[in-house]
């Protein structure tokens, strides 16, 4: 996995795992690889993996079962909620940046619609 050295590694690991959960690569109830295996797969430190997983356990996205390992939550609603959180986070960033360019809410909606339409035509 390629990392952006400017962003804390544990944060990037969390985002990678969120991504796999939302796209269904990791399904509810799936067992995650062992910590050291994840570290080898992602070429990062074991402690960094542990920090990322620790936070995800606190968030209720991952469940730790004593002696068995870590599992993706069976709570489908939590996954749906996670997806919404990530969408909101991305939209928030775009919204802030466009707002800073002095666009009104209507302008933002219009330019987004225009962008999607144009993009769709380019990709046909």
């Amino acid at each position: 996995m390629k990392f952006d050295d400017k962003v804390p590694i544990y944060y990037q690991i969390k985002n990678q795992l969120y991504h796999e959960m939302i796209t269904g690569e990791l399904e509810p109830g799936d067992k995650l690889p062992a910590v050291r295996q994840l570290a080898v797969d992602m070429t990062v430190n074991v402690n960094t993996i542990q920090r990322a997983l620790g936070e995800m356990i606190t968030e209720g996205v991952i469940e730790s079962q004593r002696g068995k390992g870590n599992f993706v939550t069976m709570d489908h609603e939590r996954i749906t909620q996670l997806k919404e959180e990530l969408i909101t986070e991305q939209l928030e960033r775009v919204y802030q940046q466009l707002h800073a360019l002095d666009l009104s809410d209507e302008d933002i909606i219009a330019s987004l619609e225009h962008f999607i339409k144009q993009r769709g035509e380019q990709h046909v």
């Binding site: 050295d5 400017k6 962003v7 920090r51």
Partner: peptide, 15 residues
Amino acid sequence: AADDIRDEYGIGIEA
């Protein structure tokens, strides 16, 4: 800590 450097300064370790 490496992640604290990234957090605090928003730059990579090399930088």
